[in-house]
Every structure is written in C-alpha cells, then in structure tokens.
Design a binder for these strands. Structure first.
Length: 264
DNA sequence: ATGGTAGCGTAGCTA
C-alpha cells in the first residue's frame, strides 16, 4: 500500500498537479491539506476518473481544509474538531484492512513564538497538546494507524536548513518541538520517513514562496510527516519526498508530496 | 534588520 500526503495550497487551482501526482506516483491514498474549498465545490471528477472513487472531505471557504482520496474503499470516515473550532483540520478514515488513517493540518502559528503575545501560536500549542492527550484516551498503540499531514513543525536539527538560525522561528522553536515529540511518544508513533532517511541528512518538504530561487538557496523545512503506530513499523517498505514537485508548473505548491510504502 | 510571494476574493487575513 502506498500513501501520500501533500499540502496543495488550493485544490481547485492545482487540480492538474494533483492528477499529475496520482498518474506518476499512483498512491492508493492521497491526503491533502489546505484545500481551501467547501465540500460542495470540491473537484471530485478528475480523481474519480482515475479510480479514486472514495473521497472523505472536511473543507471550508478560503482557509484550511483536508481531504482523503482513495482507491481503496473507506469503511468509515469522521471529521474531528479541536480547540473548540470547526476549522477543518482533521479527517480520518478506516480501510478494509483495518488500518485507520488520520489526515491532520496543524495550525501554522503566526510569526511571534510567544503564546502570551500571539494567539495563533497559543492555538498551535493547544492543538497539539489536545491531540496528544486524546490519542491514549481513545486509541491504543497496538492498533494499526497512520498519521499524516502538514504538522507545521520541523522537529529535528536536519529538518531545517539552519538549526541555529531557526531556533526562534515558528515551526522549529524548542517549545513546539517538545510538543510534537510528546505527541509522537503518546502512542509510540514511528516517523516513517526518518525510518529510512538518517537523522544526519538534511530533508525538507517545504520551501517558502518568498525566496528568489527556492532551489538555489534551498532554505527548506520538513513540515509534512507520515507516522505509523508500532504494529505497522515492520511493514514499512520505503519513503520518498518528491522534491521535484516544488518546481511543477505552472504554479507549484510551496509544499511537496511525501510518500510511504507499506507491505499491507 | 528587513522584506520578500502566494491564494482567496476583491480588503485584508492567513501562510
């Protein structure tokens, strides 16, 4: 089974890039974030045509939005809300093989890394904290589960272009990294990508639109993740970050797809 | 130290 995650930054604007990924990488499931699209306006047809007939949506106008496109049947799907907001950041599905897939879009957190001064940063920390407490409450580490999405945190030193220079930049601050690490520990989640790429190797999934030349400066961050619970770790077959998609024309997303293969 | 770009929706918010 191949699963992919991609922050698409408007699914309607980039529907042709999504179909390109489906055609070239042929994932069984594709989890999208930042669809920025109400469910009734979601462009289902190009995906259905390609066999992705099972679609779970949690979308809204203008902001956020998550979606799961699947060519495997979905036995159940559910939308979850966090921090008392209905802001379309989490949809989950159950597959026929019993695996549960969670697609999450963690709040970006604004620019100021101070929860007192910045409500967005406070929301980000609260979001991850709430979810961390929730996992052991409702699920067990023995259940086969996959968590994917734009977690908006780059936890390791080599998940950013400069650990030292990003220590006080939202996405890589110690307080965020601690929060994400605590969530990972909550059910013993295994980082499926770092399972294959050594921690001393730089790895990014996002490059800012603001760089003059994203590839030349290469100031990236690894914000997009795929985690699995311990029972799925032995099934991990490989992982890929599709860096070349950052250059897909005419209008690339600032994030690239992340893919993991499992022997399931 | 600062400003740089992008999407939505048509101003200003979010990233």
């Amino acid at each position: 089974m191949r699963i992919a995650t991609w922050n698409i930054n408007s699914v309607r604007l980039r529907v042709d890039l999504v179909t390109r990924l489906l055609d070239e990488a042929a994932p069984d499931l594709l989890c999208l974030q930042e669809t920025k699209c109400e469910d009734g306006k979601f462009p289902r047809e190009p995906f259905i045509e390609r066999g992705y007939t099972h679609i779970a949506l949690s979308g809204m106008r203008t902001y956020h939005g998550v979606a799961i496109l699947s060519r495997l049947p979905l036995e159940a799907s559910e939308i979850r809300h966090w921090c008392g907001k209905e802001d379309c950041r989490h949809v989950l599905v159950r597959l026929p093989n019993g695996v549960e897939v969670h697609n999450v879009y963690v709040p970006a957190g604004g620019d100021i890394p101070d929860p007192e001064a910045n409500e967005k940063f406070r929301h980000k920390l609260a979001f991850v904290g709430e979810m961390t407490a929730w996992w052991p409450d409702v699920r067990r580490a023995e259940q086969p589960m996959i968590l994917v999405g734009d977690l908006n945190i780059a936890p390791l030193e080599n998940d950013v272009w400069s650990h030292r220079q990003l220590l006080d930049v939202v996405s890589h601050t110690p307080v965020e990294v601690e929060k994400l690490t605590a969530m990972q520990a909550s059910l013993g989640w295994v980082d499926a990508v770092r399972h294959f790429v050594p921690a001393d190797q730089k790895l990014y999934t996002w490059w800012s639109y603001r760089a003059r030349d994203w590839a030349a400066s290469d100031r990236g961050r690894r914000l997009d993740h795929i985690w699995v619970t311990p029972p799925l770790a032995p099934a991990l077959q490989g992982a890929r970050v599709l860096r070349e998609a950052r250059g897909w024309l005419p209008k690339p997303s600032d994030h690239v797809p992340v893919l993991v293969d499992l022997d399931l």
